[in-house]
Simulated assay, not measured.
Amino acid sequence: MISTVQLVGQNSFKVEVYGEGEPLLLFPGFSSTADVYQEIVTNFSKDYQVHAFTFAGFGDVAPIQSAWLETIKKDVEIYITKKKLKNISILGHSMGGTLGLWLASDQDVYKKLILIDALPAMGALMFPNYDSESIQYDSPYNQQLLEMSEADFETMANQMAINLSLDPEGQKRIVEDMLRSDRKTYVYGYTDLLKLDLRQKLANIKVPVYILAANLPYGKEVATINYKNQYQNLSDYKLHFAENSKHFIMYDQPVWLIDQIKMALNTNE
């Protein structure tokens, strides 16, 4: 299945490297680990050098101090430079896709981006009259999350997982990842993500972007409007929807997802 596995990393992440070929960087979503990409690693490490990331505070990777998401971004750029990676494609789910957009909006060193249900400004979807400056790290909600008992946190995780995947086994894996997360990373790292607004910076991205989106829970019509609003400053992107799928498309529609990734990687646009 896999030719070689090499574990490398900065302080803010761990990377598992599989196979040989052009580099394909796999960024998981918030609180997920590289395990979320198991089937994708199996399928693509035959033709690509796959770099599967797990970020600090999640899985078995130790947490780091604040400026979590910004530190990850800078460390990924250092990693790419140190490894002398060229012709890089990024595959990112949710927050991992947002990170991919951030990287590509700052440096023109990437070949293409493949985003799984990811937005440039997640906070703008969640809050009416969104203003990134108004979102605070020291908030009553964050304090409540920090003080929440393990039992209450598990109850919350189970409720969230139902909204994130239709697949019972997928829901179980989502909960397991959430329960393994460092609590401060979970609280303040998510605040980092909510504060990040890349909508204007999308104009800097010159490479093809493929967005693989879920049609649930909003329905395809509403989801299309949300995506078009958020990506209006991006000049070149293609949007495809997974039918009957929630946010974790890799759990709900794994065959469709792998087929779409193959098409995106093989398209010379």
Results as ranks from 00 to 15, higher is better:
I2C: 13
T4Q: 15
V5K: 15
L7H: 13
N11K: 14
N11P: 10
F13V: 02
V17L: 13
L25Y: 00
F27Q: 00
G29E: 02
D35G: 15
E39G: 15
S45E: 07
K46E: 10
G59A: 04
D60M: 09
V61L: 05
A62S: 15
Q65R: 15
E70N: 08
T71K: 11
E77N: 06
I80C: 01
L85W: 02
K86M: 05
L91Q: 06
S94T: 02
S94V: 05
L99S: 00
W102G: 00
W102R: 01
W102L: 01
S105V: 07
D106E: 15
V109S: 13
I114T: 04
D117A: 10
A118F: 02
P120Q: 02
P120W: 01
A124Y: 07
M126L: 12
M126A: 11
S139M: 02
Y141F: 03
E147Q: 15
M148C: 12
A157C: 05
N158A: 10
N158L: 08
N163Y: 08
S165R: 06
P168D: 13
I174L: 05
I174D: 03
L179E: 06
R183K: 12
V187P: 01
T191V: 10
N204V: 05
N204F: 09
K206V: 10
K206T: 13
P208L: 05
V209C: 09
A214K: 03
Y218N: 14
Y218A: 14
G219M: 09
E221K: 15
A223P: 06
N226P: 14
N229S: 15
Q230T: 07
L234V: 08
S235L: 12
L239D: 03
E243K: 14
N244M: 13
K246I: 12
K246F: 13
H247E: 11
H247P: 11
I249N: 07
M250W: 03
Y251E: 12
I258V: 07
Q260W: 07
N268F: 09
E269P: 14
